[in-house]
Amino acid sequence: MPKKSEVKIIFESIKDMPPLAVSLYTMDYNKTGSWRNVRPIIDYDKCTYCTICWKFCPEPSIDLEKIEVDGKEKFKPIINYKYCKGCGICWTECPVDAIYTEEESE
């Protein structure tokens, strides 16, 4: 089941339409991951949790998860492949080359 916010709204008739041009929902239904030719993959052995990839993702399709490393709170970047367009900014900007790539086959 897709989340409610991931459903595309289709009006069956003019009666369903709101009286004004208002936004009713997000763009979450639009899975832009299908645009991707190249898949970025984070190598967590190299990742220093600097969050630079997260900072520069235009989608945004990198989520942050709070984790503890050596008793310190860190943010772990996790790529959301549902929406990542494969633009390459994250692997270009990563200062320690922790993001490698694979060609998408489908």
Binding site: T26, D28, N30, K31, P60, L64, N80, K85, C87
Partner: peptide
């Protein structure tokens, strides 16, 4: 660690900007 920019995302994903669009990043910030 503290993030250098606010964590909350208001702009959502699924938008129609081209790959690597600077204008999309501008809106996010």
């Amino acid at each position: 660690m503290k993030l250098s920019i606010p964590e909350e995302e208001i702009m959502g994903h699924g938008h129609l900007a081209c790959q690597g669009c600077g204008a999309a990043l501008a809106m996010r910030y």
